[in-house]
Design a protein around this nucleic acid. Structure first.
Lengths: 124, 124
DNA sequence: AATGTTAATTACCTTAAAGTAAGTGTCTTA
DNA sequence: TAAGACACTTACTTTAAGGTAATTAACATT
């Protein structure tokens, strides 16, 4: 193994993994993407109700970040009361399989991981 | 789309996605896993040197969490000065392809995402 | 006798993420 | 005329993550 071989992961702030994980590693982004992946199109309050535990503020923040990365599209209908719909962009859709794989992995391993964590706790 | 269809993502603190992302979404875990995936076995100070910008404290914390989840294995050699080696467990290895897919996606999309972010900034 | 080695730990501080609760605008309906 | 709908925004507070720098144990080397 050469150090060269590893530098692709370590390009400081230019590191692609970090650039993606910095956005997706937050508390809500992945949930919103998966939700829109399943639901196709949802309004602000629909997302809010589905996730239940997210605050309005955090939903706004999360949606804005995802929109800034062009992972979701925001469609405003000029009517009152306002109507705003969100759906995944092509880029968002291209990320979806990766996330779903992670979800599958999580589903397959969660029970074991939880018991590993419990063991780690008791033996410390 | 039924609400039922989405509840699998929203099981509060029992949600597998959140359980995994809570650990992997931190600043260093993925980097360490990728590193060990490439390097097979590394000592504490080797990881420290490769990542360069990680503090000793955060490396300890990160390794402990990964060990608690049984994603990495910690081998202590009873000698002085101490020697401790880390490598991926089978579970850690099973996670690796998912992470590498994410890395690939990130590599393919980072340039576009960066320009999307720039556009989002100027138009706000 | 002093210094170096390795893998940590500890106390302390800063920053960033997330949560709370209230308010905003504009129209519709009761 | 008051309340309600919707998609936010704002000010403020709390919590968690991460960083800094000094210290430790136990022996080996100079």
């Amino acid at each position: 193994m050469s150090k060269n071989n590893l530098e692709k992961y370590l390009d400081a702030d230019n590191c692609p993994v970090r650039n993606v994980l910095d956005r997706i590693g937050d508390k809500w982004s992945v949930l919103v993407i998966l939700l829109l992946g399943d639901a196709d199109t949802l309004r602000f309050n629909e997302i809010h109700k589905y996730i239940g535990t997210i605050s309005q503020k955090m939903l706004t923040v999360t949606l804005k970040k995802l929109e800034a990365d062009d992972l979701i599209h925001r469609e405003i209908y000029p009517q009152i009361p306002p109507k705003v719909e969100y759906n995944l962009t092509e880029r968002g859709k291209s990320l979806l399989p990766n996330l779903k794989n992670l979800v599958s992995w999580a589903n397959e391993h969660m029970v074991e991981i939880k018991s590993a964590r419990a063991t780690a706790l008791t033996s410390s």
